[in-house]
Design a binder for these strands. Structure first.
Lengths: 193, 193, 193, 193
DNA sequence: TATGAATGAGAATTCATTCAT
DNA sequence: TATGAATGAATTCTCATTCAT
């Protein structure tokens, strides 16, 4: 499974080779077909697994125990750091989107995995609004997509951005500047002036 | 060229078929090899073409003629609308990033295309800071990446996000909410309180 | 064994899948190899079984107790009805012939099974000739092959014949016409004018 | 095409190997897929070709120029000799029937090929009935199936029949006996007593 | 500029069969 | 008697690319 994840992340669904996955995993190729119906089924399994991991990690943040602004900052930093540490997550999502999410659409499991997060974020926003620190009327899903997007785009498109701007976006300094920028943007948005 | 762009956007570099591009274009496959060295060269040509289009469109915005806040809003709205109208731009970039931007790295043309934009944005920020409406110390590249990222992630990942959240993110109402959210985030950030 | 018979009949020796036979039989695939050396041995066992069934049924006809013409008619009708009720018999024979009867050649059992039938038929023909109702000089094997062939070809090739002639050869009316035709042909042949 | 016909005839649709067909034909395997969509399409092409051949040969018999009884005998002898000389015709038909004639069902061409034959046979029967030599009420399709069946079964099942009866059915003497038997059966049926 | 034919390397997937228990 | 896991060798089909004209 780890072998498949690495292969799919590095080369996409189409570019991944079942042969190579078997080799990476030290298995006979035939065995993959013994456990998974086909390449697509394996890809879905990898996707589900990947989502499980990040949602599991998010749970460990215990956001409900923190003051609202701290919770938002923590989630923002976590998202950035998780994407940074798990570039395969970004690649896999891109692949799945290229294919119109046709694998995920049939996956009940993934849908269930994601609802608690939005609920938690909604609670935080509500707490912030109640204590007067946050502006009102923020849609938690929009906010989540923004937190994710600010990190995702920078990291997922780091190759083209680096090529275009002629700067190495992955240098330590550049990375910390980006995180700091993202926090400024997000907190500047949620906090009441 | 349009045929190639559509094919690459829909299926990625690996999934695209030279046969199909020829068919879409009403040409003989052999002719493609007459004009382009190989599939990768064709892909690069498509990428350059695509970048040319968006940079050309950005030029038409005449951002330097607008007050700073208006300029930022206009760029933000333009970016959203352009991505919305040209989903193939997003797909192509994702493909190129999956391949570590190995095509663009060798392209002098694309690098040249992009520098003016950042310079323009820097000017706007400076004007805003000078007239006291903007906060200081904003890196134009960071800001550009944020403007792009807030739109890009939502649209590029619309399939997985829709699957995960069980909401149709592309409904007219959802789209206008997103744009309005993005403007709030970006302007909330650049404007001095 | 029934599972194997159905599978081989439906898909031929080459098209049959050991996996599927095991599944149909509710057994573990490995168990098939416990009882049979390999796929070919299983196929031979099925063939022998199948021949046993038809020869057993033929014995129940008690042809020796009937007047010659009645015996011939009875055998003819039986053959038609048996083939009609057991299409897998026809399929299996076709498969075996495609393979040059290489399985049956080694089977002593099957040869023994078939001699009594020809002997019985010979006796009937002799009785018919003796009482003046049958023409003389009929080879019982030739006659048996003709009785079988007139039914076999129609039923075994029903799909292509239906496609070619654009008629449904398996409708109740068509079937009874065929049987009646076959009896006319066979009895027209054996009976002295 | 000849290579494919030989391979399909010898091994059936499932047993045939595209590799081997290419090799037999001295072609690159890829080229087969250039001209035919897939193995099934190739098989259909072979089938159509094969039917074309026999129907073409039948036309050369000029049955309409002969007296009715001679025409029937000639068709009967021709059928036997054609099957004898073209065992691949029998094999291909058996294969197609194993697959429920799923290839032919979609073939307009083959249907058109076969109607003239039945019409010709109907004319002969009518002529015979009119001149008093033939019995009335004979369905030309039934008769054709009988003529074919008497030859087909003997030849197509020669391997199992030889194995079962322990006689070599393909010896010259056995063959001429069979043809003579078939003519007796068919003419005994059509001729008025 | 244009094309139909050709190809080698490799892709996913299948299959009968065996191992270990 | 019973089974889940494992495998090597094929098999159909695909693809970017090139040849010959």
């Amino acid at each position: 499974m780890a072998a498949a994840r690495a292969e799919f992340a590095a080369l996409g669904l189409g570019g991944a080779r079942v042969d190579r996955i078997a080799e990476r995993a030290g298995l006979n190729k035939r065995l993959i077909y013994y456990y998974f119906e086909n390449k697509d089924a394996l890809f879905l399994a990898v996707l589900e697994d990947t989502y499980l991991d990040i949602r599991e990690a998010e749970k460990q943040l215990h956001l409900t125990d923190l003051p609202p602004a701290d919770a938002i900052r923590r989630l923002t930093e976590f998202t950035w750091n998780y994407y940074l540490a798990h570039p395969e997550f970004l690649s896999l999502l891109n692949s799945e989107n290229l294919h119109g999410a046709r694998h995920l659409v049939d996956s009940q499991r993934v849908r269930e995995l994601n609802s608690p997060l939005i609920r938690t974020l909604g609670d935080i926003l509500e707490r912030g609004r109640a204590d007067g620190s946050f502006r009102g009327g923020i849609d938690p899903m929009q906010l989540y997509i923004s937190i994710a997007g600010l990190a995702y785009f920078y990291l997922s498109n780091r190759h083209t951005l680096s090529a275009i701007f002629g700067r190495n976006l992955m240098a330590a300094k550049a990375r910390s500047e980006r995180l700091s920028h993202i926090c400024d943007v997000i907190l500047g948005y949620v906090l009441r002036d």
